[in-house]
Design a protein around this nucleic acid. Structure first.
Lengths: 340, 340
DNA sequence: TTGGATTGTCGATGCGTATCGACGATGCGC
DNA sequence: GCGCATCGTCGATACGCATCGACAATCCAA
């Protein structure tokens, strides 16, 4: 493997000049730069990452803490990872995976070894064991999700409260006076306390503001359970029923349950779900969705950690950033009264 | 951050002794080792990865080339990644992501910069653009999937041929004389030529061996299309129909289509699909599956690359390793004649 | 008891890059 | 034409660890 010294020799300059050509931290004449760049190209030179990290004390690598995977819909996690890695590359960073089975010490390790310059922590939950560890680490981190106590931390998440409100407002505006919220599954509700609570708050506020009645039924795992829950909700509803299913895992069950009960989406019932556009569009009846914009969240997370690593000036960017969800109207909702 | 020199000073030994304690490449007396280890613990010492890589010429990092994501079922990709990362840690390696949007040059970059010691390439397809690049790289790599010309490469994949054969044999043994293969979607068939072909070969061989008639219908994207395909297949079948759906994306459609046509799985029809056990078990009627064992494939891939990186002796481990699929009998298949 | 092998430790050096201070060359205003 | 700032380049050094050769101490066999 060629080194910068080889490049220097071939270009007839000193090694430090080669370094300055790469970094641009000192002015270099056009002539010299050209010679060096030609030499680099000719040798197919690539700077050695280890040496670079050692000398500069920065690895140009960001650690990405990925969640343990038992969640049903991990397709979305993959979307995050993919976008995060691609976005990081645009700022000349690479992504190193930190899995959960090393526990929070995994974070201490990669930071301690100076393998990474900063961290992005995915799927942060209410009382996340990683949070206290992160607070002590001497590198910046950005959390995706919001822990119970977010003071002093940089957090990014979808605006679940707004999402909840938007769902209710949309349905209310369509003319529904009663809506049923098919909740997250119990296991999730207990764990991810945080964003579920926020979604509920949004729903409740919008319900109060619009005078909508909200029925909450717990999330189900089986189709039979879902049919029972839907049936119960139907009894309490006058007129055309409306459903909100923020957890993607519930969506299939809800749609199927309604189908089995003889209700046609967009005619006999309104449904708003959260799932990827690709999936929503493929349904027999394309679903109206409230999108949590994982791509946008991912991009913002990378941009923020990169900024932390670049602007050495303004430390402590404490801030909580909420990404606005997007409502996409498709065929699964029905207008009961003329648009205001 | 403490360095090995700090540890040495505190322990009253030389820096090289500290290094030998860590690597074990020279004998160290019990007493000295204890003193050094205590000093390390006291200072919470962690060796600097950059310095280590520079001096030892190995980064202890494996590059993982992840596929571009437009595939529907990317949940499974996440499973691979997760297991790969965890397994790598067990051998003291970390995982660096290499996304596809840098193109094959991404691989050249991470290797050229000596960021990684080796590569695992996921989702290798018939004429994968990364393959020619990999052949030229001066580090070992392990492919998951099999390219057209696999000579001289280390490849691991599920044994699709065996899987195809197992599906047909299972259904034949249950007493079905005609089975319908719901094929991969056209786009996939054209791209991933390789494993689709292998699956077909297995199906054909087993069909010939068992005297089973096989109807092939193309994979569908819509429920209407699937219903039509199923109807057509039913016409050509005498008695209880049987279906094989190796592509996970087709499974929901197939199950729903059969349901809509009034056929009950395990009573009026047999169905064998490929999807994760978790999902298969959750269906209203738990599905008999042919599992492609992504965890096992992932683990083997890591073990092989680690071996390549460790055994510097025996180079060129060219080998094609096929992981045996697993058939799990559930409720979606029906026995038509007593077991032999 | 002595020679040679083995064990345990140290000092010195190199890995490839970034960066600092130094210094000659050039341009500017007066 | 002079001093002075700016530009462009070089040499030297540091970064933290692994590794090699050297060497003192210990052990065993003859």
């Amino acid at each position: 493997m060629p080194t910068s010294k080889d490049v220097a020799r071939l270009a007839g300059v000193s090694q430090s000049t080669v370094s300055y050509v790469m970094s641009g931290r000192r002015p270099i004449s056009e002539k010299t730069r050209k010679r060096v760049e030609d030499a680099m190209a000719q040798l197919a030179f690539q700077p050695n990452a280890g040496a670079r990290a050692l000398a500069s004390r920065r690895s140009q690598v960001i650690g990405l803490a990925i969640p343990f995977v038992p969640d049903l819909h991990m397709g979305s996690i993959m979307e995050f990872i993919s976008v995060i890695a691609a976005t990081a590359r645009q700022s000349d960073y690479d992504i190193l995976l930190v899995t959960d089975d090393e526990g929070p010490q995994g974070l201490e390790r990669v930071v301690g070894q100076q393998l990474v310059d900063g961290l992005i922590i995915m799927q942060v939950e209410g009382d996340d064991a990683r949070v206290p560890v992160i607070r002590k680490l001497p590198v910046p981190s950005v959390l995706i999700g919001i822990p119970e106590d977010s003071k002093g931390l940089e957090c990014i998440d979808a605006d679940f409260e707004l999402a909840g409100a938007m769902c209710v407002e949309e349905l209310a505006q369509l003319g529904h006076e009663t809506v049923t919220l098919v909740d997250w599954q119990d296991a999730v509700v207990r764990r991810h306390v945080n964003y579920v609570k926020r979604f509920h708050r949004g729903v409740d506020k919008a319900a109060a503001a619009t005078g909508t009645k909200v029925i909450k039924v717990p999330g189900r795992v089986t189709i039979a359970g879902m049919e029972k829950a839907v049936t119960k909700a139907l009894k309490e509803t006058n007129g055309i029923p409306a459903f909100i299913a923020p957890e993607a895992a519930n969506q299939d069950l809800l749609v199927e349950a309604l189908h089995n009960l003889g209700l046609v989406l967009g005619e006999d019932a309104s449904v708003v779900v959260n799932c990827s556009d690709r999936i929503a569009e493929r349904q027999r009846i394309p679903l109206t969705t409230i999108g949590f914009e994982p791509d946008e969240v991912s991009r913002r997370a990378v941009h923020r950690i990169v900024r932390d690593l670049t602007d050495t000036t303004s430390r402590a960017h404490e801030a909580l950033e909420l990404i606005r969800p997007v409502l996409k109207r498709r065929k699964s909702t029905i207008r009961l009264r003329p648009q205001r």
